[in-house]
Design a protein around this nucleic acid. Structure first.
Lengths: 225, 225
DNA sequence: ATCAAGACTTCAGCTTTGCTTCAGAATTAA
DNA sequence: TTAATTCTGAAGCAAAGCTGAAGTCTTGAT
């Protein structure tokens, strides 16, 4: 899962980062309006954590921007303000949920999961594709009722392919989804071939068909045929 | 056992908290309607202690909310009012029991235990998984009819694994269940490895299979295979 | 057919994470 | 208070996964 954290308060930012990366997610962050706008414009996130307390009340402006872009990203508002007005303004502008500071990280996690589940899987967190079944929240993968054990990268990759099935995905898009911007996109990341290969091997060895076809010069396409 | 205490009267809240945590339970609390709603929506508790005396008669509304959510949480109503009407209203709305202030903490405890026993185990407070048998209320664990003596942390851990069998559980989730929100989740708590190891050792030494597999970079999975 | 760019395979070393052990702190029991 | 048990924290070692590079094979264009 890919998360963007927009938070200017150093300490809080760091603990959120530590917590979510600890859960195995890809996290990015922005500490001011400009940074945040750029990231939002350039990338897609499963969920954006937005602190309304940015200087100059820029938080609501950002939210407005996100929504005007018609992106699918979920938005969770974080705010120190108890005023009902702010919260309502946020929800009016299309935020998916809000959370008042201070909060427990586990609470934050629960809400983020809820948002992502609502968005991506319409209440169902199991993806089925022919003989492949992926239970996203339990992190279980089955091929023909036989369990397959994947590493984190392999799992992320599979989920990404499954949620883009029958579409051509570029190597860059895959890299962005798996590593966020920790990685210099001008790099070659040839090693993505390694992960693809390992994933393929595990799936076919478990008796699955090979649904992955490479598209020369672009990337891959996962799906029937 | 995880308990939520909804009580706006500071002194009473503190003594209930002290008492139940002293008994070795994980306790959380809420002092107003908003806090309470949020906690209820996000987490599951073995029992919720609800003071009807919240300002604005919000207690009954909360109870209604809980029941409409179809959660399994037990609810014990606490109230200073002696009126039969309130009591009936509460039980009508699905509360499990009713206690009139003032009361002795030991009485409160007895009622909570009774509710939990009734709710969670439908008269049967034993979890069985293959050759492992756990009597939750008596804190007894048996492997193939042979009793195993666990410490409290080990016991909590086992119960947590058993109630999440076949799912991948993260280290964070385990920590939250074992320590509630007293612990800074951005910490490393490496010592959880120690508890895991000790639990494993005791179970296998008693002749149990090793059902626990670690999921690299995420946490553990307990179950068959 | 030839060539270059991209794709695939393999594998070693590097990093991260997990396991084990043990000692001291904290808690509980006697 | 003392003794025993349990919990926490740290250190060293083991394992898993990730990265990077080298060599080989494929593709599509010339």
């Amino acid at each position: 899962m890919k998360i963007l954290i927009i938070e200017d308060e150093q300490g809080l930012l760091e603990s959120i980062l530590a917590y979510f990366t600890g859960e195995g997610n890809i996290c990015e962050y922005a500490t001011d309006f400009i940074q945040a706008s750029e990231k939002i414009a350039l990338y897609n996130y499963d969920c954006i954590l937005l602190d309304l307390g940015l200087p100059g009340g820029e938080g609501l402006v950002l939210l407005d921007k996100i929504k005007k872009m018609k992106k699918r990203d979920g938005v969770l508002i974080i705010s120190a303000r108890h005023s009902l007005d702010d919260r309502l303004a946020g929800l009016d502008l299309g935020a998916d949920d809000y959370l008042v500071k201070p909060f427990h990280l586990s609470e934050l996690k629960a809400r983020v999961s809820a948002i992502v589940r609502r968005k991506n899987f319409e209440g169902d967190n199991v993806i089925v594709f022919n003989e492949i079944r992926v239970d996203v929240s339990a992190m279980n993968v089955y091929v023909k009722e036989k369990q397959v054990f994947l590493t984190k990268k392999e799992f992320d990759l599979l989920v990404y392919f499954l949620s883009n099935k029958h579409k051509v995905v570029t190597k860059n898009a895959m890299a962005e989804h798996l590593w966020g911007d920790e990685m210099d996109l001008s790099d070659d990341f040839d090693f993505i071939y390694t992960h693809v290969k390992n994933l393929k091997k595990k799936l076919t060895e478990a008796g699955g068909q090979d649904y992955l076809r490479s598209v020369y010069g672009i990337g891959y396409k996962f799906g029937d045929l």
